[in-house]
Write a protein that binds this DNA or RNA. Structure first.
Lengths: 189, 189
DNA sequence: ACCTGAACACCGTTCAAGT
DNA sequence: ACCTGAACACCGTTCAAGT
């Protein structure tokens, strides 16, 4: 207890390290994909490798921390689409937005797909939230005659992930064309 | 020259090693995906790691050798579809067959997509052949009013790869439903 | 002509020792 | 409370030495 300033100094230092690590990780993932070497990230952040593990117990934790803000923005967009757009616009807008998000880093679509089935993953809660929003947006589209009855939530999740994969491995344009074609094919008309 | 039997014995041995390596690689790729450890493959084949590199200079060479037979069968199917099926059946049959093929190993869709743009890849020639068949099957479908005019060969290649990705990361059923939806959406009607 | 395995580099992960 | 980096295991790749 004495002064407390020692504690504050420590925490500020730790916080600074965490931020440097996140910045380095973002750049590494952007350049090399989600399986970029962790020791390179530590080196770029100018901290020891043990410090990285101290802040982020595994690669997933690092990815989850980096996606935190993006996910919050994405979920806010989903809520807005549900109330402020037509059912059709909400559906196409949501699928595109999630596909764009899951293409933030090469390999992210694979990580997200793997987290869906893995309760222990630090991304699992985000996947559940994402699926819930997809379900609600899909339900509205179905109710208003914009989506075929047989189409499941997981069909749409698969479409979003596949579109993200195409964005990375082919091009954003191809991805958008596939989404447009698939949604046209899933129309009840 | 002497007897020649020495040479034959050597070659038989080398051939046997190559076959053991291919069998081990097939099993490893099937279980662990295309980035399975090469030293595990050598160990399972009961040869030294140097022997693996002697036969297959890199991972791509190993994958290419394993796909050789499958690719030949796939190309034969493509040729058959062009002559022995309706334009519509040829298109759906081809897309499904390639998607199923590219999902043989986890990670194979990524390898194939990467080989498309890489002339140095040992799989590049196969990718070109695959694209040529896709182009011809698509051209016929377009001519016979089964495929929208704006649809490019690469759109279809992207669809096949994405379907393969979904087969692996979601399920074959989702993949088939996406292909059906996308092709419906790409119909001119 | 082919095989072997030691050697080196690289990366993930832990932990005893420091402040 | 946090940081450090040595230590170990694992994997990719090469190559000198063997047959």
């Amino acid at each position: 207890m004495t002064t407390g300033s020692g504690h504050r100094a420590q925490r500020a230092d730790a916080r600074r390290n965490a931020e440097r690590l996140l910045a380095a990780a973002d750049e590494a993932f952007q350049q090399l994909g989600t399986d970029a070497p962790l020791d390179k990230i530590a080196r770029d952040a100018e901290v020891a490798i043990g410090t990285l593990y101290g802040h982020f117990p595994d690669r997933q934790a690092l990815i989850a921390a980096l996606l935190r803000d993006r996910h919050d923005a994405l979920f806010a967009l989903g809520a807005r689409l549900l109330t402020e757009s037509t059912a059709a616009d909400a559906l196409t807008g949501w699928i595109s937005a999630v596909a764009r998000h899951a293409a933030t880093y090469r390999g992210l679509a694979d990580v997200i797909a793997a987290s869906r089935g893995d309760e222990a993953s630090e991304l699992h809660a985000d996947c559940v939230e994402l699926e819930t929003l997809t379900r609600r947006i899909a339900a509205r589209a179905r109710r208003e005659g914009e989506l075929r009855r047989g189409t499941s939530t997981e069909d749409l999740v698969a479409l979003m992930n596949a579109a993200a994969w195409i964005r990375v491995h082919h091009s954003p344009r191809r991805a958008e064309r596939l989404v447009a074609a698939a949604l046209a094919g899933l129309h009840p008309a």
